[in-house]
Design a protein around this nucleic acid. Sequence first.
DNA 1: CGTAGTGTTGATCTTCTTCAACATCCGTGG
DNA 2: CCACGGATGTTGAAGAAGATCAACACTACG
Lengths: 226, 226
Amino acid sequence: MKTLRLNSNDKAVLLGSRFFEKLSAAASDAILEGAVVTNHEEHDILFQQDEPVDSVFCVLSGLVRVYRLGKDGREADIAVFPKGELFGENAMFLGNRATANAQAIGSSTIARLDSRNLRKLAEQYPDIAQALMELLCRHGQMAEDCLAEDRLLTAPQRVASYILGHCPDGSTTFSFRLPFQKNVLAGKLGLAPEALSRAFSALRRSGVTVKGRMIEIHDRQALERF
Amino acid sequence: MKTLRLNSNDKAVLLGSRFFEKLSAAASDAILEGAVVTNHEEHDILFQQDEPVDSVFCVLSGLVRVYRLGKDGREADIAVFPKGELFGENAMFLGNRATANAQAIGSSTIARLDSRNLRKLAEQYPDIAQALMELLCRHGQMAEDCLAEDRLLTAPQRVASYILGHCPDGSTTFSFRLPFQKNVLAGKLGLAPEALSRAFSALRRSGVTVKGRMIEIHDRQALERF
DNA sequence: CGTAGTGTTGATCTTCTTCAACATCCGTGG
DNA sequence: CCACGGATGTTGAAGAAGATCAACACTACG
């Protein structure tokens, strides 16, 4: 795999991300010092469970799916990360071993930040430590949210919840475009693609229109009650 | 609720916990400065979703269940914490609001560490920041593990996995006592109590004996294959 | 225009929940 | 010490929710 230096656009994406936004320029520069970029085709594997990993990753373009493998080869998605999100930071605290697999969805550009460096910097800059804690917390929260939704909600309810998550608070009517294929959404929600399809059918009766990747919500309240 | 100072036993439990073990005495003292202890009966609520929380908690004795509530009142366990475990640290990074509920299982003693103080100390002592990151990472990992197991394993497989988690690596035969009622285990595994019961029945045919809270494994390999 | 990839629908099967009945365990008070 | 009652756990039967498999539709793109 060819590794490149960051170009200015890469840098802009990184600095605009949740992780970097509160950091001083000095801290950011120190982290990005030595960062590299790789390009990936659809389905490329970025790292695999139990293998050594010495970077923290950031999606510069495209999408990354993080998942675990079952003994039978089935896959369970843990998270899907869009442009601007850091991931793979867990390995840093667990002996530099990945606890999951990561795969590019569509062709993607990925930045790699040296985790040893990041760790050292976290000792030096309290801001970086703080940013790392917030990152870990967000990711923990994401997993807990998923777990709770899986256990409390049916498939159509999970889909409704996902849709509502994209819907600004005030509005009763709203529409948006899915940021990825339904395939991927199904995985993220822990559903078979067929189940997602059926869930959309069920929601259609509650004022949700689905055409391709476009979702229209005609009655927010109805969805919330679902 | 009556709040007490830490007694020497309380301190011993805290200092022996995963979180404190790598900290210097100075750091530990600084954190425990101003810590208080509360006693709770079974089912007491320690904090509730969306309510302000300004402490990080530690179980000194007993057990604590962290869970979310569904719209219909159903509950989904996120985690169960035994003696010596810190919890509730997420609120610290999310505007001091709890994102879940916490409840004592059986009568329990709980330490409360001021989160504002802890946060300040994390800036000052890199060790503390490091310990916090490891805590967050562990808890995130726990949630991801649960999520993956929920999605990849059937009820008997999840129970087998739980049992294997208590079984030292080398042994083929092993026995241990459940650290809590089956009720609680069911919740932790995301199962109805009946499903847990049936899972134990299924495992009995693979060399697992269950009598009260005692679990005996007669053939580790058989369990792993399950 | 044809083909591969993606999504939908139907039918069936498995798994788990739910509800109800029953069994077992345990502490309390007679 | 025994008897009782409540809590806890087990078992059975019915039902709901999803998974899976198969067929088909739609779309995109060469």
